[in-house]
Design a protein around this nucleic acid. Structure first.
Lengths: 161, 161
DNA sequence: GCTGGCCTTGACGCCCACGTCAACGTCTAC
DNA sequence: GTAGACGTTGACGTGGGCGTCAAGGCCAGC
């Protein structure tokens, strides 16, 4: 089959296939007229690549899987090198998830603090906004780096004529 | 103060500051000789930018915070626009974390399956699989980048005549 | 013969936050 | 006056995975 058909069957583009070939990831035989020629095995390789891509693997990380398949193994992950990539990826994922969770917590904390401060400023400016608003007056601490003061407006523009 | 000093005090580079200026994020006054001139407020803006950057905010996402500070507010997140960015970022983070966890689970499953299959293949090939090899030399796994020897083949070469 | 659809290579564009280099101006100290 | 530390603008490079032309070859059907 030619490049267009392979691309269609794999749900990708010819540009992508040429790119893979330029990396030596998915080399193609050539017909007499110079056209690239692929077979069903190439489709399998390509599908292996795409699946890993969706998992966030870089193209280079898919190489062991592809070479494993090309070496005649039943699956791309039948080879030790592929398992190693799996393990490295797991470690990366764990690390990444941990960092993101940390950031998420930080940002969540900042948002909560900022919302409290905005509410406090609004209350201090006797903006109707709230009923009794018992606990008014700026919570003194809880880790507030900025100096909470200058209660007047609360919107962007400094000038409120 | 001039650009070099600001960069040093903020732990960044002059190139970065020029980049921020080119985005209109941190404009500088100019001295008679054309040198950029900054003050303590600029340092605060810059620190705000850097903190958000470490949280993974894009430069454009820091803009509301910077403008809020420049508008005279006590903190970069004293303005509604900044709070909106916080919230959007939280949603993004949640989404990203969820996707990563899903992928992590998938990859973990694939690894476990592949390891089982490899073990099955090895057993079927009546490979001695090695002695008890309890805790001998070389920790069995837990992230051993180098290929811990080859008990027999199980390497890339198909050669299974 | 001609149109249209497929194919080829080559090369630049994109996104993002800068790094790096070049060629040159400015100021201070000796 | 000269070294050297700082500053200036401009432009290209990086990494990843392609998208998007451009200019042309090959082949089938009418």
């Amino acid at each position: 089959m030619r490049i267009g058909e392979l691309a269609r069957r794999a749900g990708t583009t010819t540009r992508t296939l040429r790119h893979y070939e330029s990396l030596g990831l998915l080399p193609a035989r050539r017909a007499g007229n110079g056209y690239r020629t692929y077979d069903e095995d190439d489709l399998r390789l390509l599908r292996q690549i795409r699946v890993l891509q969706e998992f966030g693997f870089g193209l280079e990380e898919t190489r062991p899987f592809v070479e494993c398949l090309r070496a005649g193994h039943p699956a791309g992950d039948s080879c030790p090198a592929s398992l190693e990539v799996y393990r490295r990826k797991l470690a990366e994922l764990d690390d990444c998830i941990a960092r993101l969770r940390h950031v998420r917590e930080e940002v969540g904390t900042q948002l909560a603090r900022a919302e409290r401060e905005v509410a406090a400023l609004r209350a201090a400016a006797n903006v109707p906004g709230g009923p009794p608003a018992q606990c008014a007056l700026a919570p003194p601490d809880t880790g507030t780096p900025p100096n909470a003061e200058s209660p007047s407006d609360t919107e962007m523009e400094p000038s409120t004529p």
